[in-house]
């Protein structure tokens, strides 16, 4: 997919210094703690591209996606959508923007209201956004969108309930509901993870086609690097609330710079029969608790290549350009191996 989509290089979404922290209370009357789900992220989503957010659970990728849609409130930083800062807007001011940014969820079975027919589910956004004069007109538009995502002919489906449909069909309907208001940004959180291997390709193929036809910008949240490689123009690798590496998918996922990206790639099981039984390096440990983020580089306790400046009293590495090659082609890495700390960093 890479390179085939039309990009004009201007940012559709610009995120700067974004933090999303959740206060929690541990145990019975226990002490308060703060989950630092997103902890200082700056990145841009370019119009027309597919940006992948990859990482393990606990990396903050889902929260970052939800913050872009203002489904969670950022604690600090700003999110600009189509040039407008949306962090300070209230729900009423946000409403007209919502038709331009839509989510697609992981679990198609839970993403559709079981008490609503397919026709009403896809028509409802149009009525809420006042893009259709009445229910009949909204349902007609919904039917057209359903046919566009491959639920064709849509007629027999309009009055059915989600429980009658397969996972692949439901995910198409979720796509139709997201696209019916004409969004520019679609944030898709693991759109195929719950689907059978045999239908994943169909849904990914559909998403790629819709992107070309409708000029969509995708943020694809996934833990599956193979899906990211297939669909994304650029990927941002996240660890414990930070972006640790970002760049073109064909570069980041073929020549990983950050030790974490490399570990993720090494861990992907290969179908290649030649690889059967092959011993591969496995990164020990798990993502630490986001209430107690390690000092220095937050990856250092698991990093096979950690050295002095990374340690607990070391320096928190910032994203630095490794290779610059124009908008959308630059690789940035937050790692002291690639961007050695300068004395001024110590202040």
């Amino acid at each position: 997919m890479s390179g085939t989509t039309r990009r004009n290089g201007s940012p559709l979404v610009a995120i700067s210094d974004l933090e999303v922290h959740f206060p929690i209370r541990r145990g019975f009357g226990g002490r308060k703690a703060v989950v630092r789900a997103v902890d200082g992220v700056s990145l841009e989503v370019l119009a027309g591209e597919t940006l992948g957010l990859v990482g393990e659970s606990g990396s903050g990728k889902t929260t970052l996606g939800r913050a872009m849609l203002r489904l969670v409130e950022p604690t600090a930083g700003r999110v600009e959508f189509e040039g407008r800062d949306i962090t300070g807007l209230d729900e009423k001011q946000l409403r007209p923007l919502r038709r331009r940014m839509q989510p697609v969820f992981q679990d198609p079975h839970a993403a559709l209201n079981p008490a609503m027919t397919i026709g009403d589910a896809v028509a409802h956004p149009l009525l809420i956004q006042r893009l259709a004069p009445d229910r009949a007109a909204a349902r007609a538009q919904a039917a057209a969108m359903l046919e566009r995502v491959g639920i064709a002919p849509a007629g027999p489906f309009l009055d059915r309930y989600p429980e009658d449909l397969s996972g692949g069909q439901k995910q198409r309907i979720v796509l139709a509901r997201a696209l019916v208001t004409g969004p520019s940004l679609v944030v898709a959180d693991e759109p195929v993870a719950m689907l059978d291997m045999s239908v994943r390709a169909l849904v990914l193929d559909l998403m790629a086609g819709l992107q070309r036809e409708l000029g969509l910008t995708y943020v694809l949240i996934t833990h599956d690097l193979a899906t990211a490689r297939l669909l994304c123009d650029r990927v941002a690798v996240m660890y414990l609330g930070r972006v640790v590496e970002i760049g073109p998918a064909d570069r980041v996922l073929t020549e990983p710079r950050h030790p974490y990206t490399r570990a993720l790639l090494d861990a992907v099981p290969r179908v290649d029969p030649a690889a059967a039984g092959r011993a591969r390096p496995v990164l020990p440990g798990e993502v630490p608790d986001a209430t107690r983020i390690p000092g220095g580089c937050r990856f250092h306790p698991r990093c096979p290549e950690a050295f002095a400046p990374c340690g607990p009293d070391g320096i928190d590495p910032a994203l630095g350009t490794v290779t610059a090659a124009g908008p959308g082609r630059t690789v940035e890495v937050a790692c002291h191996l690639w961007n050695p700390p300068t004395p001024s960093d110590r202040s």
């Binding site: 989510p103 969820f105 993403a111 559709l112 209201n113 008490a115 956004p125 809420i128 509901r177």
Partner: peptide, 24 residues
Amino acid sequence: PFVDAARAMGAPRRVIIVRYVAAN
């Protein structure tokens, strides 16, 4: 997630409660 979807389409709270929550 379908309640999130309703929020993301800009549905007012009253509509979400009646059509997405109460209905279930």
